[in-house]
Design a protein around this nucleic acid. Structure first.
Length: 445
RNA sequence: CGGGGCGUGGCGCAGUCUGGUAGCGCACCUGUUUUGGGUACAGGGGGUCGUAGGUUCGAAUCCUGCCGCCCCGACCA
């Protein structure tokens, strides 16, 4: 993309209403524009990151054997009356009436809808196990939306639902989700720690929340410092392997890590003092096993081998896709702006032309642009006629991990400059070598 | 929902106390100049001062209602 043809409304000054760093940078980098309290338009740059995160979530869900689909945002109140949650959910549910006076709602979650789909089409134990998911906009009418996209009323979320014949099978689905989530967050450059949590209005006994440690997190968390040494890494995983999923779950959840809701002071104090950490975290996902709560209320049963109806065991699992955009920035920024992890960056490499209009510089930039594009990467070429300072400030703010700087002085010696946004270190390379290096960096993903 | 605060060009703000018909910086447009870390100069466009009503010769300014937004708390992906 050429910056002169893009829509990137960056701001020099901090918007007054943005309190936390991710919100400030998202506004300043032209990623979002607030439409109402807790409701945002996603401008092109923000939209790219949102879609990139969504793509990673899809890839990892599909890898784990889960099946993508799409359910509507507007749902019928009748379905929610059936589960009993129409009354229970309270003011957070946005209720709407259509022209015929029918009660509807903007879905805050989809257990009812998915259960309805399941009971209509699945009747045999042979069709299990089954895990369906979708990524869709949700609405929860928060009392006080804040922190930009991290606590909006409208938010984009992946929610998935597993249907299994018995508790053991459902627990494997639970474990499988935990493993796939570990992988998902790591690909985004995040460490998200699974913590024993509280199930809230969804109900159920087993649940873990995934927390990204950050000073601005809304939850207080207590953990054994040893959990931060754990890393999923590049290990091979067979999602059908019950024992393997179980052992990974144990590896990542056996150390003490809890939110304030489930914190146990006595257990915590058993840890050596140096390992007891109290910090704050941003919740970026949660997994639940809730047994037959919805299947019994809504008649979601299958016929077992003996011909008798059995209510299915279910779980649900969520990843806050839009919230992750903010969470990643909270976890990865400096005083100049955002620093995107390579996995989610909106553009792979910036190209800064220090002398737009200089024949050699223009040509060198065009060549870089073409070579990077041909390699399947997406560069952002700043071809505006602006001072170097402004160009660098914009690049630093929007946080592309790599930048190639081209100027007539360097070109005299046949070199351009390749700079890491993260370390700030630059090296002088021939244009060909710079391109090769950037291609190599992204080769894995 | 309780407590507090704020609505003045796209963004950040002054002007409100003490009424006299709107100003600054950034951004934007034109020209010249400049260009290696947010160039300089000159000219220019853009605001029924959130909204409705009231007081007054006259309201951004005073009074009342409404709307919107933000912050602190209790709740949530």
């Amino acid at each position: 993309m050429r910056l002169s043809r893009y829509f990137l409304p960056v701001l020099k000054e901090d918007p007054a209403d943005a309190q936390i760093v991710s919100h400030r940078y998202m506004l300043r980098a032209g990623m979002i524009k607030q439409a109402q309290a807790g409701i945002y338009s996603w401008l092109p740059l923000g939209f790219k990151v949102l879609k990139r995160i969504e793509e990673i979530v899809h890839e990892e869900q599909i890898r784990a054997g889960h099946i993508p689909m799409l359910m509507p945002t507007l749902q019928s109140a009748d379905l929610w009356r059936e589960s009993g949650r129409y009354e229970d959910y309270g003011e957070e549910m946005l209720r709407i009436t259509d022209r015929h006076g029918r009660d509807m709602l903007y879905g805050p979650t989809n257990e009812e809808l998915i259960t309805d789909i399941f009971r209509t089409h699945v009747s045999s134990y042979k069709d299990l196990p089954l895990t369906l998911y979708h990524i869709q906009w949700k609405f929860r009418d928060e009392r006080r939306p804040r922190f930009g996209v991290m606590r909006g009323r409208e938010f984009y979320m992946k929610d998935g639902y597993n249907f299994d014949l018995d508790k053991a099978a459902a627990m494997h689905a639970y474990n499988r989700h935990l493993v796939s989530y570990l992988r998902t967050y790591e690909r985004m450059g995040l460490q998200a720690i699974p913590m024993r949590a509280d199930s809230g209005p969804i109900g159920g006994d087993d649940t873990h929340e995934f927390l990204v440690l950050a000073e601005t997190g809304e939850s207080e968390v207590f953990y054994d410092s040893a959990v931060t040494d754990l890393s999923f890494g590049d290990r091979a995983i067979d999602y059908d392997d019950v024992a393997q999923c179980q052992s990974i779950l144990e590896e990542f959840t056996s150390k003490y890590a809890r939110t304030d809701e489930t914190h146990d002071e006595a257990l915590f104090n058993d840890l050596p003092e140096a390992r007891r950490k109290v910090a704050r975290g941003i919740e970026v996902g949660q997994i639940f096993y809730f047994g037959t709560k919805y299947s019994e209320a809504m008649g979601a049963t299958v016929q077992g081998p003996d011909g008798k109806p059995v209510p299915v065991h279910m779980g649900s699992h969520g990843i806050g896709v839009s919230r992750l955009v903010g969470a990643i920035i909270e976890a990865s920024h400096d005083e100049k702006g955002i620093i995107w992890p390579e996995g989610v960056t909106p553009f792979h490499c910036g190209i800064v032309n220090l002398k737009q209009g200089d024949e050699a510089a223009d040509k060198a930039c065009e060549n870089l642009y073409e070579q990077l594009s041909n390699a399947g990467l997406e560069p952002l070429y700043d071809d505006r006629d602006e001072r170097a300072g402004g160009k660098f400030a914009t690049m630093d703010l929007i946080g592309l991990p790599w930048r190639i700087t081209v100027g007539p002085r360097g070109l005299k010696n046949g070199v351009v400059e390749l700079t890491s946004r993260k370390t700030g270190e630059s090296e002088e390379l021939t244009p060909e070598a710079a391109v090769a290096k950037v291609i190599l960096i992204y080769a894995g993903s």
